[in-house]
Design a protein around this nucleic acid. Structure first.
Length: 269
DNA sequence: ATGGTCGATAGTCGA
């Protein structure tokens, strides 16, 4: 049995937080790290620094200022090239690879779903419409592709689907990230791919679970008003290989922290 | 108490 550890982290600037990425690598010892919000054009990616952390294989889809995803790996992979340009915006929110994993290839998708702005109304707020359109497109894409096999999907999905994925279900019903329309959309996407929630596999649904705490809180730890926005999903055939999970909450308390913390799952292949 | 704090960027925009 070989172990495969896949982590996901909204790093909120890969250039600013390259040292913290090293801390993540040392803390979790992942084989693969999927990043979101790298905020870095590909030609400015600190490639040597990333490789020096122990990840010789790197793929990135970045742009100036906003968004951006990247995948770092200790094992070889091929980058997928024909996946959709979501909402035809060219905005660097998805990167897919095929991993040369133990026991055969594994398809891995790294997503950064639009945050959706502040007002949960498509007419009043185009960003919210974009978010819903993005998830709907991804759902349609999943339906067309049929049931996933040996596939993993990670990322900042910017939706906290379960009541215990937010600090107060009632108080966040009208807050973008936890509105019923978003939760329904994410559920449709998940069902379309028959995806298995790999973190809730280990943590019962009646237990609070967060991966993000706002920068705006006076004391994020004391207030603990978090949300679970970052997810790892696996295809049904991989559910039985799930061995462990980790949510690196300590990373939120680091100097110059991202507002998201790394999430990791371990497969026994 | 509708605020608050970040990052990229060079005025604000996005989160």
């Amino acid at each position: 049995m070989a172990s495969l550890r896949i982590a996901t982290w909204n790093i909120n600037s890969v250039r600013l937080r390259l040292p913290l990425l090293g801390e993540v690598a040392r803390s979790l010892e992942p084989d693969i790290i999927c990043l979101q919000e790298t905020k870095c054009p590909d030609e400015l990616l600190p490639l040597d620094g990333l490789k020096a952390l122990g990840f010789p294989y790197v793929a990135a889809r970045g742009m100036k200022g906003y968004n951006g995803v990247a995948i770092l790996s200790r094992i070889p992979f091929e980058t997928r090239t024909n996946d959709p340009d979501w909402c035809l915006k060219g905005d660097c929110r998805h990167l897919g690879i095929t991993l040369d994993a133990p026991g055969g290839p594994i398809e891995l998708h790294d997503f950064y779903v639009p945050a959706g702005g502040d007002i949960p109304d498509r007419a009043a707020n185009p960003k919210f419409g974009h978010k819903l359109d993005f998830v709907a497109e991804a759902t349609t894409w999943s339906v067309a592709r049929g049931e996933n096999r040996r596939s993993v999907m990670v990322g900042d999905l910017n939706i906290a689907p379960l009541e215990q994925d937010v600090w107060s279900h009632k108080q966040l019903l009208d807050v973008v990230s936890h509105t019923p329309v978003e939760v329904a959309a994410l559920g449709a996407w998940q069902r379309a791919g028959a995806w298995h929630d790999a973190v809730r596999h280990f943590v019962p649904e009646d237990q609070k679970l967060y991966t993000w705490w706002s920068y705006r809180a006076r004391d994020w730890l004391a207030a603990d008003r978090g949300r679970r926005l970052d997810h790892v999903w696996v295809s049904p055939d991989l559910a039985g290989t799930l061995r462990s999970h980790a949510i690196l909450k300590a990373a939120r308390g680091w100097e110059k922290a991202s507002d998201h913390v790394p999430v990791m799952i371990e497969l026994a292949l």
